[in-house]
Design a protein around this nucleic acid. Structure first.
Lengths: 351, 351
DNA sequence: GACTAGTGCGCCCTTATCGTA
DNA sequence: CTACGATAAGGGCGCACTAGT
């Protein structure tokens, strides 16, 4: 009875009372249901490939939907399911040299992320920490932090949002509440140390700011593999090619005359290379140079750069997978990604 | 009366009939309304700073919302307003050398985009063309295409979605239906030509694939400024440092012995530089080198690179602004961004 | 009675419109 | 007229249920 009244009301109301501009309205499941001669829920199930709909009906509905260019209204689904079907990647976007994640790496990470998030039917939202924290909206299911830098306070604030939260970087002491995934920086530093030791290098210059946990790990790995045999001079400096140039020049001015430079990143190492070559030194005859990351430019540097490769694409995919598991209710553990040393002319070149 | 019945029904129904897991539910406007002793709509208005709510009430509600950590349910608002409050940036994410937009540029563009979209209360979604086209969802208000490459078919497909659509690149013949915004590539090429002509260079090598409209424009600008005075050899090659190295080597093998190389991008020019230096040539004494884009690495190349600067941050902001205007119902026109030549040692170095 | 394919209803949360004190 | 409230969408989907074998 109520049903009848409502139907009558609906058909009488030629001009809808409230609501936004109906001119922009698209095809809905209801429309599609009428066209197909079934109910809306059947459309829903058919488009989801549910077993509850016969294959024949399912196909008919799917082709009908395709023919009419039907697109699912995400807002309605999200509202009903209490999920946003989107995850957020937080990035420090300002183009500064002082950035722990360099550009090609960032793109590869995002590429991997995009792959898994799309496969899971999720959108990938890009933002930075300020925007994320100042938004008063509840529109994401989980957060991924790329390039944590050395700032714990921001991580804690983001964590306070109460969403699944995965950070790319070096794991801190436990208890943060979030999940950390990163490369095995200690092992990376160690393999550099072993390589240089095998080459008989004794006087190392390390470029990078140990305030970043990743950098500290790389340095400690390097130290552990070279303990007795090498002397290591550390110059704390930000990331970037310019910083590598400056730091190397500074070291030389201050009297450093070693036989190897290790950059905490490829950009740092390539900056060092520029300064060394400019000073008339031969690489690797006088000074060997090693980087970290294996960005594309490393292979085509003036002297191809020996460096530590990390599988960024896989890393991005792993970040996404873990976050999505967490969103789905599991509680996955952290993980370290393996690394591998790529030997090039900057350490093993012909003399 | 109906009201009373429903209230009674609600209070009796301890366990709700349908719906998803209620444990995960957050605070809603209704809850907040009860706490504040007003109706939900008043909460809505107060949080929007509407004049329809007294300032005193407004402030009380806002602080209440803040105290309880209330976050607006975006899905519900989007459903009601028939807007997604999100725009999509489409990017070719695969790390290939054959990419018309290099990484730092991409990040700067995205940074500018992020700025304006957030200011407008919009989320920025990142995706690639495949994902965008295969999605059967209707969850974005507009699309921005970064790095169109030479593939018109994809643009037409995206355009067929019927959403506001802005493309970064060189404008094509009219009638596409979408909006194109790009740098003034012709003028950029021309200023390179004028610069090299003033320096007395006569035999130019141009690296880049004219199949890309941007590249074709740069080349035609270069030609127009050097018409009588120069001979230009064109080597069609993809983007990237490696391609620049190979192409230059190829040109020299084939007998090219000119006095200037112009790369369609900085990466191409820097690759050329590597090959030239490796062949024992002096830059710019024997050969001047010019790039395009002014990526950060250009300033710190072995020989700092003369190049054409484009304001990427501003470009991203402009892309976003135009798209948002279109989303809001206006129909803004296309635009060209100004460029400027940055003269460095690769053309005006001491001899 | 057990099973399958499909239906009716209500709810998710916010906001435009109109009504009311 | 000012400040607030009641109502009704907005589109999709989970649950309980029914028609059919």
């Amino acid at each position: 009875m109520i049903d009848d009244l409502e139907r009558a009301g609906a058909s009488v109301t030629v001009k809808r009372a409230g609501g936004p501009d109906p001119a922009r309205s698209r095809l809905t499941m209801g429309d599609l249901a009428q066209l197909a001669g079934v109910s809306a829920i059947t459309i829903s199930r058919a488009l989801k490939n549910s077993d509850l709909v016969r294959p024949a009906v399912r196909e008919k509905i799917q082709s009908l939907a395709a023919a009419h260019g039907y697109r699912l209204n995400t807002a309605a689904r999200n509202l009903r399911l209490r999920r946003n079907h989107s995850i957020t990647a937080v990035v420090n976007m300002t183009p500064s040299a002082d950035r722990p994640i360099s550009d090609p790496i960032f793109l590869a990470l995002v590429g991997g992320l995009l792959q898994v998030s799309t496969d899971a039917g999720c959108r990938l939202i890009l933002t930075n920490a300020d925007q994320l924290l100042s938004s008063r909206n509840d529109d994401t299911d989980g957060i991924i932090f790329l390039g944590q830098g050395s700032d714990d306070a921001v991580l804690r604030e983001v964590n306070a949002l109460g969403l699944p939260f995965v950070v790319w970087g070096a794991p801190r002491e436990e208890g943060g509440g979030w999940l950390t995934i990163g490369s095995d920086n200690v092992r990376g530093g160690r393999s550099i140390g072993e390589h240089l030791t095998a080459l008989g290098r004794k006087q190392l210059l390390f470029l990078g700011d140990p305030a970043y946990p990743e950098v500290a790990d790389r340095l400690s790995g390097l130290r552990s593999a070279t303990a007795a045999s090498c002397e290591i001079t550390v110059i704390a400096c930000p990331f970037g090619r310019g910083a590598g140039m400056t730091a190397t020049a500074q070291a030389m001015t201050e009297g450093w005359r070693g036989d190897a430079v290790v950059g905490a990143s490829d950009t740092l190492a390539m900056g060092a290379m520029t300064t060394l070559l400019g000073a008339g030194l031969h690489i690797p005859h006088h000074v060997a140079v090693v980087g970290f990351d294996d960005i594309p430019a490393a292979a085509t540097a003036p002297v191809p750069l020996t460096t530590v490769r990390q599988d960024w694409d896989k890393a991005g995919a792993l970040l996404g997978t873990k976050l999505l598991q967490w969103v789905a209710g599991e509680r996955p553990g952290g993980e370290m990604l393996p690394i591998s040393l790529v030997e090039r002319a900057s350490t093993i070149g012909m003399r």
